[in-house]
Design a protein around this nucleic acid. Structure first.
Lengths: 243, 243
DNA sequence: CGGTCCCTTGAATGTGATCAATTCGAGTGG
DNA sequence: CCACTCGAATTGATCACATTCAAGGGACCG
């Protein structure tokens, strides 16, 4: 049971009861392998499911006519994709696999019993989705207030913090399997400028790059510099209903 | 009953049952008047409630040491503030009144019976919060992809769409009680540049300004230009539990 | 009437984009 | 094992969008 990366991830926030674990197991029933680049959801598609990302990485993208692309969110194994979309009828952005991997489709209608019979788990999903929401707010703040370099630092710290939720004891070295073009799309910069910034940071001895790994040589300093607070560690569960 | 702007707003999405209306009424019990500028929640504060905004406008702000400020979200009468914060233990950003107004504090613990006994209303709140989440994603996309002028247009269209949820038959003229400094904080620009852009748009006959009102002279063209889709109108309620 | 806040406009500056060219590395096929 | 290709990284030169600095005007208020 605890091999499920979904349960592992959720357990970081609250203990999962038997009945809840059963529900989660049903969410992860039909695993579906996907190649890198496969599109899971396109703008305008009816939203008919949420997805558990079992293996691999996925990204949420926004695109405009001229082909320019922004990466809005990176999804890591064990995360539930599409929670933020349970409101609208149709999807607004593109959800696609970045690497090869596997997902489990869980039809939206399956959420009905979640709210009816497992209120505590419903609350947990809502709370986890709220962390996402807060992280996105932080990103808006970063895009609006920070210099290019600080935005890049923010991106690295944010990615590390998310990885740390799924990997106990993650240090300052982690996988960062994105091209510089993609990093640019994630922080609102040209790949060329991303390159200059990264090279500069390596030269100053602030990061090390051994593709596809990065090491933050003084994370504390970086966090201080941009005032980063990791809000992926704690969840207030006191108001949750009984299991 | 239908004088409540909260019920009015929620009714745009789904019919509210008797029992649900009672719960909402309890949320709006203790009304509290606040002056313009009053801070409701500061970064680091324990999150102990959600708030129904009864009158006036409120804003969610992010600040950094040097005093620079970003406006992350504008709240309008009838909106529930703090739904996005139900996950974390402590607040990350500043929530403050922009005008004088009134709010109703609803302790977080009061959400327990919501999930336990009114699953459909819980689902509705979750879905409404998800609309917020999507709008924020759009804002990230706008900040990352759009030119200064397009970001400004996005801001105007987004504000109008939100106002339209609470005001039946809202046209293209609406209240925009923000200084140019604040508009700049909301779109990530200097007030000086905001001024230049607004003046330019007036000169080109694309908007009219009669402080504090704005009129969009060709909204369709603006929406086409930046590919804006109003996702505040429709909610998929098919998966909601029975009331 | 003086202060304050906001809007407005001009000129100079700079951060990050664009354009252009070279290098590097991982395949792939001969 | 070497040539070839293709995508990504790297670096230089130039450009422009938006900022910063500076100054003046209008409205409101004590």
């Amino acid at each position: 049971m605890s091999e499920s990366c979904l349960v592992t991830r959720l357990s970081r926030y609250a203990a999962i009861s038997e009945r809840e674990a059963e529900f989660l197991a049903r969410m992860e029933e039909a695993e579906e392998r996907l190649d890198a680049g496969s599109v899971i959801q396109s703008p305008g598609d009816p939203v008919e499911a949420v997805y558990v990302l079992k293996h691999g990485w996925a990204v949420q993208r926004a695109q405009i006519r001229d082909g320019r692309t922004a990466i809005l969110r990176v999804y890591l194994p064990g995360e539930v994709m599409g929670l933020a979309e349970i409101g609208p009828m149709t999807a607004l952005h593109t959800l696609a696999m970045r690497t090869e991997g596997a997902i489990c489709r869980f039809p939206r209608a399956g959420l009905t019993p979640l709210f009816q019979e497992l209120p505590r788990l419903a609350a947990l999903f809502t709370a986890v989705s709220s962390l996402d929401h807060m992280a996105l707010r932080d990103k808006v703040a970063a895009l609006g207030l920070f210099s290019a370099e600080d935005r890049l630092i923010h991106f690295l710290l944010d990615l590390r913090a998310r990885l740390a939720v799924g990997t106990i004891g993650l240090g300052n070295r982690f996988r960062m399997p994105f091209s510089q073009v993609e990093i640019g799309q994630a922080v609102g910069l040209t790949s060329i400028y991303v390159n200059r910034l990264l090279r500069g940071m390596v030269r100053d001895g602030r990061i090390e790059i051994e593709r596809p790994y990065v090491r933050l040589l003084d994370r504390a300093a970086m966090e201080r510099r941009i005032g980063y607070v990791d809000h992926f560690r704690l969840l207030d569960t006191t108001w949750f209903p009984e299991a």
